[in-house]
Structure formats: C-alpha cells, structure tokens
Simulated assay, not measured.
Amino acid sequence: MAVGHEVELFLEMLAAERAASPNTLLAYSADLESCTAFLAAQGVLPVYAKAEELAAWLADLSLDGQSRRTVARRLSCLKQFYLFLLREGVRKDNPAANLDAPRPEATLPHFLSESEVVALLEACSAPEGASIAQKRRALVARAALELLYASGLRITELLTLPREALRADKPMLLIRGKGGRERLVPISESAREAALALYACDAWRESPWLFPGRDAKRALTRQAFDKILHEVGLRAGLDPQRLSPHVLRHSFATHLLAHGADLRALQMLLGHADIATTQIYTHVQTERLKQAVEAYHPLATQPDKTAQKTG
C-alpha cells in the first residue's frame, strides 16, 4: 500500500470508530505529513521507520522551538498510527510504543492579591436604586465569590451545590468532587451569611439548587456565572481577562499557604487526589520569594555597584 493510503485508512478509522472531530483529523493529518517529510529527507518511508528515526523527528521538533505539549501530542499521534499499522498487519511492531513524551511545562497558576479579592467582593454590592433583579444578581455574585474564595471550590462543585447543603448551624459544606470523592470544607462566617441571604431571597422559587438558573429546576450555568464575574470585575477595576473561577481557587490556595497553612490540609481542602498536584502552590511561593529578593535586596538591585566594590 502507498504511504498516503495508509494515512487515509488511519484517519478513516479515527472518524468511524472514535468519532474524531474534523479538527482532530486535520491535526493528525498535519502531524503525519510533517513526520513523513522529515523521514523522506533521510531516505526513509514511514512504514519502515525505526524507533530511533522517529525519536530524531521528535527531537527536531523541540529544536525547532515547538512546545512540549505540541511534541507530546505529535508523539501520541505516532503511537496511534503505528498501533493501527500493527493491528492491520502492515507492521509486526510499534516503533513509537516506547518513545517517551517530554514532560509538560510547569505553568504556575494565576492568582489575585488579597487586596484585589477584597475589591472584588466589595464590588458585589447592588447599585443605589437597583431593581429587584439587580439586587438578586448582586446576592448571587456575593454568595458565589465568597464561597469560591473562602473554600477553594471548583466552579462545577459550587454550581451543583444542592440547596440543602447549606445549614445555618453548620460551618461545613459536604462537597462531591472529581471522581465522586466527597470532602468536608469549612466556610467562613461572611461566606455563610452571603449564601444564607441568597437562600432566603430564593425561598419562593423552591429550587433544588443553591444557585438556581432562570429555570429554577436547573442550576445556574457556567456561562451565566462568567457574565456575572465579568461585570463584578469591571466594577472592581480589575481586568476581566485575569478573572475566572479557577483564579479564585488558586488565590484561596496561595493565600492560605502564604499565611502558614499546612500542605496536607490544603490538599484535603482542594480535593486533590495526589499531593503532587497541590505542591504547585509551593512553587508559587518560591517564585514570590525570589521576586521579593530581586526587588528589595540591595545586592540584587545594584549589581554594577557591587561589581565595582569587589573589583
């Protein structure tokens, strides 16, 4: 079979058996075209390629400045393509099976300063002369942002909170997180008061959700909440591009660590299955300390003068 025909069969299999999207098919087609061109320059046909030749292509991608994530995705494509050839009897092995993907780049989470969070919460107040709908919208914003920041909830965990999850005499919320794992998280007094204010306002709607949408039978959607957050951000004088529910979760974790919280306790509060996930916040603290030294230490800010004195 011609090389192009093998690729076509592979893409047809992805579309038929795995319902791959058009974008995925285009990406895989481009990946295999790039690999084919590299191998052709070495006088090698993809169907006969060896592991070291495929590894050379991946290394060339990295040298060309492509991100680790892109290289990892292209390796995934190779593994699937050669597994397909193996199953079809075209090859007797999968030369890409044991190739290692590059480690993903460690991106530090974005977070707000404590003063920015305060400004955001203060901006949840309804304007003077507000309508009933505007006042309720302010209650939704305040309750949601207080709970997100006070407890580090994921947005899906917040929006799917049942109405009965909130009890005036209970300082804890039972959260069902990823993988169905349950955890108890404490809520601050101000967060509980904000949530109870919304609870009382919506009593007549008889919704099963603490944050009901326009249809009381359904929970508030992520898109509707994003609009509320955008409005509050503008009133607080913050760039809405910097705001998201996850930024508030990151702010919760970063601020707790900054005030001496234990990493294991933070893991439990965030609902991380692996503490390695929680440890990203220690990197945030390390980066902040590094910036503080560079900004305020006299030897760090005056390298030229230091060099003259020691010269």
Rank of each mutant, 00 (worst) to 15 (best):
L9D: 13
Q302K: 09
L263P: 03
L85G: 07
T160A: 13
L153T: 06
G4W: 01
A19E: 10
L145I: 08
R214C: 05
L270S: 02
R167C: 06
A273S: 07
L158E: 08
A295Y: 09
P245T: 01
T306L: 15
A49P: 14
E122Y: 00
I275W: 00
D304L: 14
R68P: 02
K178N: 02
K217T: 13
L45I: 13
L147T: 13
L112F: 04
R87F: 09
F81M: 03
L243C: 08
L269R: 06
R264F: 04
L25Y: 00
P162W: 05
D64G: 15
A106K: 15
Q279V: 05
L229D: 13
I187K: 01
T221W: 04
M268R: 13
I132P: 11
D226N: 14
R136V: 07
A292T: 14
G152A: 06
S113I: 03
D262A: 04
H246R: 08
T278V: 03
L147D: 11
A292C: 12
L270C: 03
L173A: 02
P240W: 06
A138K: 00
L9H: 09
R176L: 14
L54N: 12
H5M: 14
A41D: 14
L26F: 07
G311S: 14
L174Q: 10
G43I: 07
V117M: 01
A236R: 01
V140L: 12
E33Q: 15
A126H: 01
R249Y: 12
M1N: 08
T310W: 15
R192S: 07
Y199C: 03
F81I: 05
K50V: 10
G213S: 06
